[in-house]
Design a protein around this nucleic acid. Structure first.
Length: 890
RNA sequence: CGGGCCAUAGCUCAGUUGGUUAGAGCGCCACGUUGACAUCGUGGAGGUCACAGGUUCGAAUCCCGUUGGUCCGACCA
């Protein structure tokens, strides 16, 4: 069959993916092999494949495929997380647009029914997109953080933590998202500098005198003020402390109090205390037993607790705008300053986060953090790159309790029940239990009222933070809570976690905590942190900027292998990638190169016997050299893999294939136009290329599988992805060095050819100045034949006589003459030689400096000194040659 | 304010425990196509390793400082 001149990935990718899947290569069940397991960082169920996913999952696939080829029992568990806020928003929108339903009109159960419907319909998109990338996940294990079993695990963990006093319900200042109408954890709030205004407002004394001026960004909150605080050391205000001042517009008297918290230098040195709307004010309020007046509703509007009627019902920002007029009119506004300040916004909705006093559920982090920090510092859990230990430690040493309740429906509902007889948020009894029946039993017990029924209880309306389920991922996906002695013992701890460093706190840290807390063991041996994928301008890729390429289109344009290559070729662990289509283009070109290797080899006709002895010797050398070189490449690749230096491993293979295999080896053995190749060399080449395909397979699975099959008729099940990864064997270092020396000579000849505009196919005559080194080098069987072919020579001789009309070059410590039927430009030649001589003299000068230093000779390792001596003598030999040449030029 | 990370060719980055006058890819320059591949080949140019000091026989590499970038955290009336 005729092969097309270009590699077309679309022809083969789907074919091989379904073949692999059908053959069950991705499936894993425990057996007596060593396990190699990875749990996917579950993408958001609403997600679509983007650059970050592609990078992340390419890395996981490389590791998994390599482990599989190494004969390990490789298990890659895929899945998605339920992403409570994002998904609930999506479902609400879907209900509104497609079903003409409002969430408010649905019961909780109805809503959940629809939400699962939505998930069934749209939730698996990203997992299908991963297949296009080549991801070799065990799809039978696909997990979801809201699956029935998973749901139960989350509830069980909640109850367990509560019973062990590691989880509590408390009234705290929390981050409130008024748009999503839910609390957020600290990690879900993104701070950024924004323009704001500082209002200077005068609070008069009760007798109408000047009183005090405070500065605030939020004039709409003055009606929630309960005091003015000043620093006790601030002499300006000493007289006022203990007196009362009046809130403008409503003239409510509030006390002036003294508290160290107030910074004398900042603003006016007087601070309004608004405990309901500022975390620090809340603390101050607590210290002084002040009341809390909450004037902002869950939607972010001014509520009727606000004593100033004109702004009641307004959104907080609208209220702020209007306050300017009211204050001015009233004469209380002293001035307005422009001001830069950090504003916190919700990661999900981008609305300005409102500090709010609220009853929420928290996990106590202090105990959980201890083993998790130790594990990383002791390298029980190894970080790649290790520099992320610092970031991790920094966070772990400043742990704050984790708010895990969310005011949503989509998620695991908090298994806590209260007595209906007690008012909302006024509960004194809390019953935490796996089931409502248990809770009822607890309630009867606690109240001594055996007549209590389910109707007397109400369950907490809130659900748990998504991360409070996904931190259990490495345990729950192996059913480790239900069957702690089941297959989890085989797969856990998992081998490596691959994830972006931006979720080190959200996820990595908490998984480590959960691992030790619930299994007494780390969840993974290692964490490989990927960088962020950015655009050429170093901006993070984001929907709003529109700078993110369409992942699926990239896969179509460049092929999965091309994209994988592009992502990996510049992705050192932890390092950001400045993404450019050019990277994928390189990958596509590489595939094309491989494809054309195949075309070349398949185009050859084969004879049983080599045409002559020279060719036989040359080809035997080529095969031997490439085989030996391959061993070295494999040793390096193996070492790169163990250190997770995946880009380096790929680059090593790439260079070997493109340079050594294509540019040197194939050119060495390539028969003349329409000439046949001998059987022995042909078979060796096919075997070598097959092995190379296996070695490259983890990085570029599709093209390697295709070429593997094109090279030979393979039996059923003899697939590239199911081979044994080539194990490095011995190699002849001297032979490799000799070929390197020969390559150097060839390059020297080509350079002269180029510089003198001799056509590539015009054969040249070359003379090597006779020396022991040259004789030794060319004693290598096949080497002379190889040099003659590669440099396109009609003759190659060793002689002590210098040929006429020849240009010379130095390779190693030897001089070579290339005969040219041209007159030599003496002046140019002298210039060139002089420059070279200067370089060489500088070179040996630096070495002589070293060697004449006794302390160097005495304290440096013998091998280093020996090497310097060799460099010196080689340099001297080259100088000798150059000086001779110069003197002969006259 | 505190902390991390980084600074190497025009660009993006490698550079393992200190040991050739520093490497790759892209880009650039010259030449080249009846030949596996122009998604290509051959050759070439291009760097005071941010700056200043220190340790060492020896520093891109280790230490200190400066400058610049970037990220995280705290504060933020």
């Amino acid at each position: 069959m005729e092969l097309s001149a270009r590699y077309t990935p679309s022809d083969i990718e789907e074919k091989w993916y379904s073949h692999w899947e059908k053959s069950g290569y991705f499936k894993s069940v425990p057996d007596d092999r060593e396990a190699f397991s990875i749990v996917i960082p579950p993408p958001n169920v609403t997600g679509m494949l983007h650059m970050g996913h592609m990078l992340n999952n390419t890395i996981q696939d490389i590791l998994i495929r390599k482990a599989r080829l190494d004969g390990k029992n490789a298990c890659w568990v895929p899945g998605t997380d339920h992403a409570s806020i994002a998904t609930e928003a999506k479902v609400v929108r879907w209900l509104r647009d497609e079903k003409k339903l409002r969430k408010a009109d649905l019961t909780r159960d109805e809503f959940m029914e629809y939400a699962y419907q939505w998930k069934e319909k749209y939730g698996g998109i990203i997992l299908h997109q991963l297949r296009k990338l080549g991801a070799s996940c065990d799809w039978d294990r696909t997990a979801f953080t809201m699956d029935k079993g998973y749901y139960e695990d989350v509830i069980r963990v909640f109850v367990d933590l509560y019973q062990r006093d590691k989880l509590y319900r408390g009234l705290r200042m929390v981050n409130w998202d008024p748009e999503a109408k839910t609390v957020l954890s600290n990690e879900e709030v993104i701070y950024g500098e924004e323009n704001a205004q500082l209002f200077h407002i005068q609070y008069k004394n009760e007798d109408g005198s000047a009183g005090v001026v405070i500065a605030t960004q939020r004039p709409e909150t003055i009606f929630a003020d309960v005091a003015i605080a000043v620093n006790p050391k601030d002499s300006r205000y000493t007289a006022l402390v203990g007196k009362k001042v009046l809130i403008p517009l409503i003239n409510r008297p509030i006390p002036v109090i003294a508290d160290d918290y107030v910074d004398i230098e900042f603003g006016t040195g007087a601070l309004k205390i608004t405990p309901a709307h500022d975390p620090n004010d809340y603390e101050v309020g607590q210290r002084h037993q002040l009341e809390v007046i909450d004037t902002i509703s869950d939607e972010g509007r001014i509520n009727d607790k606000c004593a100033f009627a004109p702004i009641v019902g307004l959104d907080r920002f609208e209220a702020r705008k209007q306050m300017k007029g009211f204050l001015e009119e009233n004469g209380s506004l002293v001035k307005i300053e422009d001001y830069r300040t950090n504003i916190g916004r919700s990661e999900r909705t981008n609305s300005v986060v409102e500090p709010k006093l609220s009853l929420q559920w928290f996990v106590k982090m202090s105990d959980l953090g201890v083993p998790a920090l130790k594990a990383v510092l002791d390298e029980e859990v190894k970080f790649y790159p290790p520099s992320f230990q610092n970031l991790y430690r920094n966070w772990m040493e400043n742990l704050r309790d984790w708010c895990i309740s969310r005011q949503l429906w989509w998620g695991q509902r908090i298994p806590a029940w209260y007595l209906k007889s007690e008012g909302l948020s006024q509960e004194t009894h809390v019953f935490v239990a796996l089931t409502a029946e248990d809770a009822l039993a607890q309630a009867r017990n606690a109240t001594g009222n055996a007549q209590l029924s389910m109707d007397d209880l109400r369950q907490d309306e809130d659900v748990l933070d998504t991360w409070a389920s996904s931190w259990l991922w490495p345990i729950s996906v192996f059913d480790g809570f239900n069957k702690p002695d089941g297959e989890i013992n085989y797969y856990y701890p998992t081998s490596v976690l691959v994830t972006g460093w931006d979720i080190i706190f959200f996820w990595v840290a908490r998984m480590v905590m959960a691992g030790y807390e619930f299994r007494g063991e780390k969840p993974f041996q290692a964490v490989y942190f990927t960088g962020m994928v950015r655009d050429k301008l170093r901006r993070k890729m984001s929907k709003s900027l529109g700078n993110s390429p369409d992942a699926l289109k990239l896969l179509e344009d460049y092929g999965a292998d091309g994209v994988r290559y592009g992502l990996m070729s510049s992705a050192a662990a932890g390092g950001d990638i400045l993404f450019d289509d050019k990277l994928c283009e390189n990958g596509r070109n590489f595939c094309n190169k491989l494809w054309n290797v195949l075309r070349l080899i398949k185009g050859w006709s084969v004879t049983e016997v080599p045409e002559n002895e020279e060719i036989a010797r040359k080809n035997a050398l080529a095969v031997q050299w490439l085989t030996d070189k391959f061993q070295q490449v494999l040793i390096q690749a193996e070492s790169d893999f163990t250190q997770f230096r995946l880009s380096e491993a790929l680059l090593g293979l790439y260079t070997f294939i493109w340079d050594d295999f294509c540019s040197w080896y194939l050119e060495m053995i390539k028969p003349g136009y329409e000439q046949p190749i001998d059987r022995k060399t042909y078979e060796a080449t096919i075997d070598l290329l097959s092995q190379i395909m296996v070695a490259l397979h983890p990085f570029m699975p599709f093209v390697t599988e295709e070429i593997w099959h094109q090279l030979r008729n393979r039996k059923e099940g003899d697939d590239c992805c199911a081979q044994q990864y080539p194990k490095p064997g011995k190699s002849d270092i001297q032979l490799i060095a000799r070929v390197e020396a020969a390559k150097n000579i060839i390059t020297g000849i080509r350079d002269i050819r180029n510089q003198n505009q001799v056509k590539p196919r015009d054969p040249l005559a070359v003379v090597a100045q006779d020396s022991l080194a040259v004789q030794e080098l060319f004693a290598q069987e096949g080497l002379q034949e190889m040099v003659m072919k590669m440099a396109v020579l009609k003759s190659f001789d060793c002689s002590s006589n210098e040929p006429q009309n020849a240009k010379s070059f130095i390779s190693g410590t030897d001089k070579f003459y290339v005969e040219l039927n041209q007159t030599i430009d003496v002046a140019a030649e002298r210039k060139k030689l002089t420059e070279e001589l200067e370089y060489q003299r500088g070179f040996i000068q630096s070495i002589e400096n070293k060697l004449s230093n006794e302390r160097f000779v005495n304290s440096a390792p013998a091998a280093v000194v020996e090497n310097e001596r060799k460099k010196l003598s080689d340099g001297q030999a080259r100088i000798q040659i150059l000086e001779d040449s110069l003197s002969k030029l006259g």
